[in-house]
């Protein structure tokens, strides 16, 4: 049962990697990285049950948090070209802000 889940996760990982390699737009790649992070979380959970020691589930939850914050950081970076204080960013597209 968990073996089937692991195989399914591997197949999805390969598909996500293909999308990440092929692109073509930036957003495909951001989404692919985010999906890969989610697959990592799921795989850690499945790995814990496969080896009979589901002690790492809380670690998997922490991975989910990192994944979320990382995606937000990347997207914010794309929107504002900076991670710092937004008010100091040169106003390139006036109608955006």
């Amino acid at each position: 049962m968990f073996l089937a889940a692991a195989i399914a996760l591997f197949i999805s990982m390969v598909m996500v990697l293909t999308r990440l390699y092929a692109g073509p737009t930036v957003y495909d790649r951001v989404l692919a990285l985010n999906s890969f992070g989610t697959l990592t979380v799921l795989f850690i959970a499945v790995l814990g049950f496969l080896s009979g020691r589901p002690d790492f589930l809380d670690i998997a939850i922490l991975y989910a948090l990192i994944n979320f914050v990382g995606t937000i950081a990347i997207l914010k970076f794309f929107r504002y070209r900076s991670l710092g204080d937004i008010s100091q960013v040169p106003d390139k597209k006036g109608h955006d802000q």
Partner: peptide, 24 residues
Amino acid sequence: IYSLFAVVMLSGVFSLLSALLFVA
């Protein structure tokens, strides 16, 4: 790949994969 943005995303995947290996 020559697009550096894709390279950055791929290096993120690279470190997620090595993290999975460390968990294993």
